[in-house]
Amino acid sequence: MVENRPLADFITHLVLVLGVVAIALPIWITFVAASHDEIRMAQAPLPLWPGDQLWVNLKQTLFGEGLSGTETAPVWLMLFNSLFMALMISLGKIGISLLSAFAIVYFKFPFRMACFWMIFITLMLPVEVRILPTFEVVANLGMLNSYWGLSIPLIASATATFMFRQVFLTVPDEMLESARIDGAGPMRFFWDILLPLSRTNIAALFVILFIFGWNQYLWPLLITTDTSMTTIVMSIKQMLEAAEQSPQWNIIMMTALLAMIPPIFVVISMQKLFVQGLTETDK
């Protein structure tokens, strides 16, 4: 900083530490709750310091019967479903957006602008506003209770296409010209030049889309009636309802913890790429 004032520095760190505490408090309390036994978690005031039941709760949550009084899929299966759905959404979205952005930027063809606008307009249509008719379409296609039904309707949003279009537009024209002089055809150029050049953007987008996919709530809730297809995020709601009868907060909070660890892990481990992708391309 410009000047060196110990007091100002102290205040700065103090505010930041308080901010971190405020932001982290809910997560900390979740962690604490997941580390005590059921009996301790039914007595007010609840503990603020972790107990010694973390592994017991983890084992019971992952492989046990789950919450008493509910009929849910085992948590490990829900985790798997979430992972599979998140991967399908993020990889599928990246794949088709790369292709369509490539076509829109690097080819001149009839109806190019029509295609662009048709894709672009989906930027404005979050799944929440067209939920009923989309549900009908998926039902008619027989995709209820399937991984396809969970992921495909969420795949084709324009955000990723739009972002790759921006990225491709910043690739110097000379790359293409040079490749053409070198004799590379369109797909060869795509694989050899364009994809390697967009590596960091692809990685950043993967983080964003993985979180988007993992955190889906309303859509999976609607189209999965079969408990074996439930995702971990949507299961929280059932658990909260069950908690009103039999509060097993240690198990509920352990489930919540398990539901947030994978996306948090992805964000933290790919922090640099993710921040770059978020702040440079989301605008």
């Binding site: 369509s100 076509a103 894709i119 307009i121 249509l125 067209r130 495909i152």
Partner: peptide, 25 residues
């Protein structure tokens, strides 16, 4: 024909799961 093949997957999904439901709504 290549560009049409490239946009086809996204266009298909967009039409079936976005444009059609939105117009239905």
């Amino acid at each position: 024909p290549l560009p049409y093949l490239l946009v086809a997957p996204q266009l298909a999904i967009t039409l079936i799961f976005f444009i059609w439901p939105a117009s239905q709504a």
